[in-house]
Amino acid sequence: MSDTAAPLTQDRRKLEMAALSAPAVFFTVAMIAFPVVYTIWLGFQTFSSTGKQSFAGLANYSKLISDYEFWHGLWITIALFVLSLVLQLVFGVWLALVLFNAKRLPGIVRSLFISPFMMPPVVAGMMWLVILDPSLGAANYILQSFGLPPSDWLASPTWVIPTVALIDSWQWTPYVALIVLGGLQSLPPSVYEAAQIDGASPFKTFQRITLPLLLPTIVTAAILRSVDLLRFFDIIYITTQGGPGNASNTLNIYGFRVGFEFFNIGYASALMLTLTAIVFGAVLAFNRLRGAVAW
């Protein structure tokens, strides 16, 4: 009697748990699935400039192939991604090492070091727009006071991407440093004691021990930053709106303008889904890399 009663109670309990959690699960899935499914559907529609809608099949996707702005935007997106990620990883690891070794640094100074990423990107964009203004900004004043020539910064087609990468790195390097600092604090001290006994120099210790052991943490930071960098939007929107010309017209900015300024929601959806696929691809690649460097 008791042998059959126990599984029945267990089954009933499982059923109750499923029933109780079903609304939350349904709500969560719907919240994620609806926008994605709706965007996929929109990607198969065409909207005239008056907003009239009709089925377009794969026309939006075939248009991508011959659209110069798409390829240009993709190139700008990748250039910005690579430049920013390299800067943020290199300086993030460096900053983490500084903070890790400077154990006597007061808490307030540590907080100041990591404060930029707490600032909303729009505020950061506005602030740097003022600093980098070629006529009124502080950046050129500083350059000129050291006898250096002024720069057009965000107004130069050549320098706009490095400048945007610098702004983003100013904001997000502390975030990378915070992740890496967590990784540093979890490294086993015994390995360092052994290296010290063997007489390894600080550089060798960093090269042979710290860096390989930190690699999984660094890759995690890279994954988190990659998602943001490939979808880069706010700072460019605030500072250049994709200009000068189309020198900073990333895929995300281009898609936004096609959708919300030119009202071609169908093509904008196709652009955004392509960008989503690129982001997924990058995350999968980094995940594989993380698997390869795990210890």
Binding site: D133, P134, S135, L136, P150, D152, W153, L154, A155, S156, T239, T240, G243, P244, G245
Partner: peptide, 20 residues
């Protein structure tokens, strides 16, 4: 001004108001 390709009304007003 240098960087005029990024100038809209905000930048123009700021430049003129500041006497530059």
């Amino acid at each position: 001004p240098p960087g005029v390709v990024n100038y809209s009304f905000q930048q123009i007003s700021a430049l003129y108001r500041s006497g530059r």
